[in-house]
């Protein structure tokens, strides 16, 4: 483990949005967290929904949360990603077998027993989300009738009920993604999720944070989405103009905090030195 106070300060370019969000998400992680990050496909989606959370979890391990556990794709425990030259291309990429790690689950059921509550923090992503935090990865209704096929619910239902808490990474923030009501609920609306925790006895708290290229959102006591902070590159008006429902905005909404320089240094030197996870490979010399 490397503590920020002992790592050398590296002068470099200002943080990219991806780096800023990785530091922000790392700060949400606790020392006793077991973090599930999946492998999501599609370049922008993969960066947002897989690269940033994975970098954040390893950053948290190397700073304030040395005992945190990373469950990559639910079967690789605490991977060492420093030597990785390209992101894994699939959930069972053969190259994952060459990744140094603490443990590699070879069996199902195995290292991740979701219904027992093994996972305390998960990450997900979707084409649609609504103000109740319900996600849709399954199908989109078309205006003239019919629908457009997406890929199916995958593990979203379990993310939203069985994982301790959930951070939703939305790679796109437009009115067609932030909708009044999702066309298919792959997980429960948060008010129903909370009622269901008592009724069904599942341990998950549902979505706690939603991160987008424009802002960070969380949920109020009624389980409805509200604006937590706005990125410096956006504004409240910009967020509202690209949100398809009446978003709760408090009188004072801060700007999303700039990343701590020491965390940024660790991120660049110890977590993702080749820029593989955060898509900074092509950036000039640091």
């Amino acid at each position: 483990m490397i503590t920020p106070s002992t790592s050398p300060s590296v002068l470099g370019p200002p943080a990219t949005l991806e780096e800023q969000l990785a530091v922000l998400i790392a700060s949400e992680m606790r020392d006793d967290d077991v973090v599930f990050t999946g492998l999501v496909t599609g370049d922008r989606t993969a960066l947002f929904a897989a690269g940033i959370p994975l970098a954040a979890a390893v950053l948290a391990q190397k700073t304030h949360a040395p005992n945190l556990t990373v469950l990559l794709a639910g079967w690789i425990v605490n991977p060492d990603l420093r030597e990785m030259r390209r992101p894994p291309v699939s959930e069972f990429d053969p190259e994952l077998l060459t990744l140094p790690c603490d443990a590699r689950g070879q069996r199902f059921p195995g290292v991740m027993n979701a219904q027992r509550g093994d996972v305390t923090l998960g990450f997900s992503s979707a084409a649609q989300i609504d103000r109740t935090g319900a996600l849709n990865t399954h199908r989109i209704n078309l205006p003239g009738g019919g629908f457009r096929a997406l890929v199916g619910p995958i593990l979203i239902p379990e993310h939203m009920t069985l994982f301790g808490r959930e951070i939703v990474m939305m790679p796109r923030h437009d009115k067609r993604n932030f909708v009044g009501q999702v066309d298919y609920r792959c997980g429960p609306p948060l008010p129903r999720q909370r009622a269901g925790a008592a009724e069904y006895g599942y341990g998950g708290a549902g979505p706690s944070l939603v991160v987008t290229p424009r802002c960070v959102l969380d949920f109020d006591q009624e389980g409805l989405m509200k604006l937590r902070s706005v990125h410096a590159t956006s504004s409240i008006d910009d967020v509202l103009a690209h949100t398809g429902f009446d978003l709760r905005v408090d009188s004072s909404v801060p700007t999303t905090p700039r990343p701590d320089q020491e965390y940024l240094d660790v991120l660049r030197t110890e977590v993702d030195p080749f820029g593989v996870m955060l898509g900074t490979q092509d950036r000039g010399s640091r």
């Binding site: 979701a114 219904q115 619910p153 979203i156 239902p157 379990e158 939203m160 009920t161 069985l162 298919y184 609920r185 792959c186 997980g187 429960p188 609306p189 129903r192 999720q193 269901g196 009724e199 069904y200 006895g201 599942y202």
Partner: peptide, 9 residues
Amino acid sequence: VIGIAGSDL
């Protein structure tokens, strides 16, 4: 199963 409770599934 409990993990699908509350969803459209």
